[in-house]
Each structure stands twice: as C-alpha cells, then as structure tokens.
Amino acid sequence: MSLLGKKWPVPVGKTVWPFYAAGVVILYGVNAAANASMNSAEFKNDPRNPHAKPAKKDH
C-alpha cells in the first residue's frame, strides 16, 4: 500500500500548465518592475537599495 493513497491516472501536468506559465510571467514582471524601481532616480540613493553606492564617510 502506498503512503500517498491510491494512484489515479489523472494528467495533472497537462491541466495546470497554463497556471505555471502565468506564474512565471507574473514573477518575471514583478522582478522587472522591482529592478526598474531600484534603478529609478527616486530610489537611487536610498540606503535600503542593494544597488546603492555606499556613502563615503569623512573623518
């Protein structure tokens, strides 16, 4: 007996591929928007921006 129960011959991958494709497209769009936001003039020098240049300290 299987731990997952009875195996049903259901083509799961064939039925949910549009949702996987849409998820990839949405993730790509969110990533592109975040990168564009990080490189915009408004957030260019924000200390939370991982691409920001570190401020030079004068001693």
Rank of each mutant, 00 (worst) to 15 (best):
Y28H: 02
P11W: 01
G23H: 08
K14L: 15
A41E: 14
A52P: 11
N45L: 10
G13E: 03
N35H: 10
F43Y: 05
K57D: 03
N49C: 06
M38D: 00
L27T: 11
G23Q: 11
H51T: 09
N35Y: 04
A55F: 06
D46N: 14
V30D: 01
F19M: 11
V30E: 02
I26K: 05
P18V: 06
M38V: 02
I26H: 05
Y28D: 06
A55V: 15
G23L: 12
H59V: 14
V30G: 04
A22C: 03
A21F: 12
T15W: 07
V30H: 00
A21W: 11
P50A: 00
P9I: 09
V10C: 14
R48K: 12
P11Y: 00
A41W: 10
G29E: 13
I26D: 09
K57G: 01
A33W: 05
E42P: 02
P11M: 02
G13D: 05
F19V: 12
G13Q: 03
P47D: 15
G13S: 05
S37P: 08
P9M: 12
D46R: 10
N49I: 05
A33I: 04
L27Q: 06
V25Y: 01
I26R: 04
W17H: 11
A36F: 13
S37E: 09
P47N: 14
P47S: 15
S37Q: 10
K44V: 03
S37L: 12
N49R: 00
K57T: 04
P9Y: 05
A21Y: 07
A55M: 08
G23P: 00
R48V: 05
V12L: 11
A21D: 07
A21Q: 09
G29T: 13
V30P: 01
P9F: 06
K56Q: 11
K57H: 03
K56N: 08
V12C: 04
K44H: 05
K53G: 05
V25N: 02
A55L: 10
P9N: 14
N39H: 07
K53S: 07
A21S: 09
A21K: 06
L27Y: 02
